[in-house]
Design a protein around this nucleic acid. Structure first.
Lengths: 181, 181
DNA sequence: GTCTATACACCGATAGAC
DNA sequence: GTCTATCGGTGTATAGAC
């Protein structure tokens, strides 16, 4: 198994159980590696595993969200590409957002800087697309915040209500709403 | 100190650290009671403390949200009263939502039924107000879901961005948006 | 690079004195 | 009703064989 595949499996555990709930026993079971083997790959332990997982999400953000938003093409097309990748990343609402899980839990302090940066760059990059459509930068920023906010809220509701319908509705309408609100 | 005051202090810890992060040491410190004293008041331990805290939130939901929504008066006034109470309850975005914290953490399974019920009754009651304004029940339900979704998303963003501005913006515009969207 | 075995701290929970 | 002391279990992390 590749290192990346290991990290993907760790990610699944952190997403589902949060930082505290992602015990070494669970991480071990999910990867098929013994605890000591995990420490071979991540010498600084659980915190390094979480960092590796966060780095992978940041890579996803860069390659599947920011890159797409900065690409050539019409704003509408780029935003639609973003929402499609968001939909896939969260498995149509079935998987939680790692940022939200880590931000709301006890691990808040540990990862706060990284989470804040990631959310901000996502919002900023989306806002820049909206500026291209003629919006002033303040309104663009607010509308971009609203978009991320709705995605996060939809994921919370999906988990709390055990129903992905609100998430799918948000994803579907988001491009048009952002551009024409 | 009254039992209610104890529960309020427990609530603060659960909100801030989540179920797993709310250790007996922290709960003890926050209340000023020793661990054994906490077990005197809550014989079934931490789970009973969390249940008591959830019950208190449910009481708040009933008295400060549902009751207000069902009251006499214009729909707009009732919805404005709701958002004002929401704003206060979350300390203008500074405090997380217990439902979200518990739903996203490992404790999901333990409290899932209660959280799902609470979110649903909130949405349903808000939707009934919207039906009064002439909306069909399906659109009313969706718009009510959107309102709760935005509140939850705003709280996630407030925590992740360390900025309550999105929350305050959502609270301010929510009544008008719900009624005129 | 993986394992078994283990160290040590902290967890939730309890006993029993006052 | 509160405390100190302590229990068993589990958490993270390590040592060392293979």
């Amino acid at each position: 198994m590749s290192r990346d595949e290991v990290i993907v499996r760790l990610l699944k555990v952190f997403r589902q159980y949060g930082y505290e709930g992602a015990t070494l026993a669970r991480l071990s079971e999910a990867t098929g590696l013994g605890k000591a083997s995990l420490y071979h790959h991540f010498p600084k332990g659980k915190e390094e595993m979480a960092t590796a997982v966060l780095n992978r999400i940041n890579h996803w953000l860069e390659s599947s969200i920011l890159k797409v938003l900065r690409a050539a093409g019409k704003p509408e097309e780029r935003i639609r590409a973003m929402t499609a990748n968001v939909d896939e990343h969260y498995s149509h609402g079935q998987q939680s957002c790692l940022f939200a899980v880590l931000a709301l839990g006890e691990s808040h302090d540990l990862f706060h800087t990284e989470i804040k940066y990631a959310l901000n760059i996502w919002i900023d990059t989306l806002a820049e697309v909206l500026v291209e459509t003629g919006l002033d930068s303040e309104r663009a920023r607010q509308r971009a915040e609203d978009a991320i906010l709705q995605i996060q809220g939809a994921l919370v509701l999906a988990r709390g209500l055990d129903d992905t319908a609100p998430f799918e509705r948000v994803i579907k309408r988001l491009p048009e709403e952002i551009l024409n609100a």
